[in-house]
Design a protein around this nucleic acid. Sequence first.
DNA 1: TTGCTCCTCACGTCACGTGAGGTGGC
DNA 2: TTGCTCCTCACGTCACGTGAGGTGGC
Lengths: 282, 282
Amino acid sequence: VTVLLTIGEFSRMTHLSVKALRHYHDVGVLEPAAVDPTSSYRRYSASQVPTAQLIRRLRDLDMPLDEVRVVLDAPDDAARNRAILTHLERMEDHLAQTRATVASLRALLADPTAPAVIEHRTVMPMRSLAIRGTVRMDDSERWLTSAYDEIDGLLSRTHTEPVAAAGALYPREFFELEAGRVTAFVPVLGEPATAGRVELLDLPAGELAVMLHEGPFSDLDRTYGALGTYVAERNIGAEGAIREHYLVTETHTPDPAQHRTEVCWPIATEATLSPTTNGVIP
Amino acid sequence: VTVLLTIGEFSRMTHLSVKALRHYHDVGVLEPAAVDPTSSYRRYSASQVPTAQLIRRLRDLDMPLDEVRVVLDAPDDAARNRAILTHLERMEDHLAQTRATVASLRALLADPTAPAVIEHRTVMPMRSLAIRGTVRMDDSERWLTSAYDEIDGLLSRTHTEPVAAAGALYPREFFELEAGRVTAFVPVLGEPATAGRVELLDLPAGELAVMLHEGPFSDLDRTYGALGTYVAERNIGAEGAIREHYLVTETHTPDPAQHRTEVCWPIATEATLSPTTNGVIP
DNA sequence: TTGCTCCTCACGTCACGTGAGGTGGC
DNA sequence: TTGCTCCTCACGTCACGTGAGGTGGC
């Protein structure tokens, strides 16, 4: 004999607000055991209390309602635990991201205008194995990792050696929309075989303003700011994608302070400018 | 000579999306250095880059835009740092809350239906020093702490001894709306003086179903669920506020597992029920 | 000159909260 | 019987994102 409870009683027993319970009904996360057809009164069963307690905890952990539904509809405990653990792992990632941002904030407050050493560099067309894909900015690290894994797999299977550090091309829209078609590449020589998502690509030649970023990715915008300011002040900006070269990464050392990334901003060729602006500029 | 940048250039340099920059302009968080009166084109100065970098970090830490504005408008570094530290402390609190929720989730998954030991208790009117206030559920711990601090201060100044553990009254709406007029009370004898927010109050007499909650507050809903189910199944619910007694709290021991809270649910008096339902019921 | 950049609405998202206005049950 | 509980819209919140439709600058 399971008692039926009004929404108010059920709310008090579960510490879920009446508004939230009605919302969970609307979106099918927690259906009342019965609904009076004439009055539309919702009736909950006492046996629904544990489900409500689970929902409350998952929501307190910011799990989206769509995923809560997946957890509740899981066919067995294993599937349910998998869905929950996936979310907990995402929370861990988020926490690590937050720690990095706090460190980055402290660094910015300590020294808002770090010095910039910028070099001009002329690059030839660079033959590369590449993977292209539409990527969102907050997912770019994950996407790059999987792309380089695939390219590296192909390299080792075909006994091919990369001839320079891996990098990526970011079209201008990528920063303006925080999403766009990114190209992950690894420079190679000759005519290596391709497979899967990997294609052979000749990166365009051109003139680049290059600045070395020392430290974690969460500070990368500061290098972009310095480099962009440099290019804008001299009015030497040119068409084309921004290029990053990953010289020292997570795969080399777990210490983010040791990481090294080259940021390359396309600029107008020397020929069209004063010949005095080449070389290293402080 | 500060260069003026288009919104697109500024976006690339700061890694803030164009949409976000326009929004920050609309709400007055980051005003462009100039706006073309005919074309409405926004122009940003290179000197605004560090401000944008600060905004990005604060937003990545989920600081609301209203507070970001406070940080940016701070008259000096001390005020600015205070605003930022306040937010970082809130984040710490939130993290602690998250850890508690994860523990609570694990406990629920390990044992979804903990056993309930419920006792019936008849209480006389209980004279108390009390503070009443409109409180939101997520702020209740903080509010209670400040209320008991004030009552305790009055007690020690007037050399008055409490005669029972502190507690609080929660009207039914408090759980349904997650907000309501809460009463924090400390039982006393006689006619102690009152001051500030503290008033003298006689808690209503009545019959209560009482269950001891052992553990942290984040698990309190499980005791509510068990107690509410018990009351509903026997159909003995009565009017009146739910009462909590804080027997062992943070002030006694930092270990939440040691905390003890009595939850008291108003029920119909014995006289109106079968006389066999009194005493401890398994 | 042509396409790219920029503009302004207007609406959508997510998980509810906030009333308004009205009915049902003890 | 009276007030309390419950109901359904409709709209608001927060920080943007997503188009639509149109203009300006190199």
